[in-house]
């Protein structure tokens, strides 16, 4: 299925882009991370520590074991530092 991926903060910097569209068969957020990590060194570095990765599906925060189901937009980012 086609998914729009968004990256923010240091994840965006490490990957080198804030947005891309990919075709993937990944079933969960964690599967997608694993698939991205295998791509190249930049992705492997960006996703090296899953404890510091947060994810959102269609702009709602989810756990990494969440199923991707029919989400169009998958976002990855570090823990948030607002306020």
């Amino acid at each position: 299925m086609k998914r729009d991926l968004r990256y923010f903060a240091w994840l965006r910097e490490r990957i080198g882009t804030g947005h891309e569209s990919i075709e993937t068969d990944a079933a969960t957020v964690a599967d997608l991370i694993e698939e991205l990590r295998r791509r190249d060194e930049a992705y492997a570095f960006a996703f090296s520590d899953t404890a510091s990765i947060r994810a959102a599906l269609d702009q709602d925060l989810v756990d990494l074991d969440a199923p991707l189901s029919d989400a169009r937009e998958v976002a990855f980012f570090p823990p948030m530092t607002g306020g």
């Binding site: 923010f8 903060a9 925060l61 980012f77 570090p78 823990p79 948030m80 530092t81 607002g82 306020g83």
Partner: peptide
């Protein structure tokens, strides 16, 4: 602080650093 998608970066004379949660 921890549920709204904002990320702070501090810019100093020696470089830029993302603020850690």
């Amino acid at each position: 602080k921890s549920r709204a998608p904002f990320w702070k970066k501090e810019i100093t004379a020696t470089g830029a650093v993302w603020v850690a949660a």
